[in-house]
Design a protein around this nucleic acid. Sequence first.
DNA 1: GAGTGGCA
DNA 2: CGTG
Length: 217
Amino acid sequence: MTAELFNDITDTSTWQERLGPGSVILRRYAAASDTALLAAIEDAVATAPFRHMQTPGGFTMSAAMSNCGDYGWTADTDGYRYSATDPLNDRAWPAMPETLSELASRAAAAAGFAAFQPDVCLINRYEPGARMSLHQDRDEADLTQPIVSVSLGLPMTFLFGGLRRKERPARIELQHGDVVVWGGEDRLRYHGVAPLKDGEHPLLGRYRINLTLRRAH
DNA sequence: GAGTGGCA
DNA sequence: CGTG
């Protein structure tokens, strides 16, 4: 698929690439607020530390995860679900900082989804070699609400497939600050993360952090 | 009913 | 290394 470019001549630091009728990459959209986002993440994981969850198949996920917001996405041998409490301590997840919810709302609006108010921020941390195999985000109650994904740190190859797993995904390089929004008829597209290549990022060292903002309920 | 993993 |  050839990305259609929408360059805004008044702001050459950020631009959009359309991946489908309901999916857009906002290049470098979050780069200007990266230090505020990282401070918000550090604050959240001080309360709800990164952990490697188990899949229902009994495998350990290679990305370390945490959450903030009214709910958090969790995986264990019983399945995938959203929970109002952190299973590590049965306490509420840390509140979602406004920095994160406002970024997500603005990005969704820029992509054509008005009034997006996330109630979950899943925080995924990848080290070199970590990956996420192709999956759909379908544990949310209202699939008319989009998904907003923010990439920070090491660059990665985003796999963006179709509505069926057998469709071979596009491979899209995402850099620090890139935001991907998908919804509408693209809401259930399969997506994943290719094994992270080694490298060094000025702010994040040998890590990539992905924020996925969702409306769970 | 498998499933965001492992391995051929 | 990418695919299944």
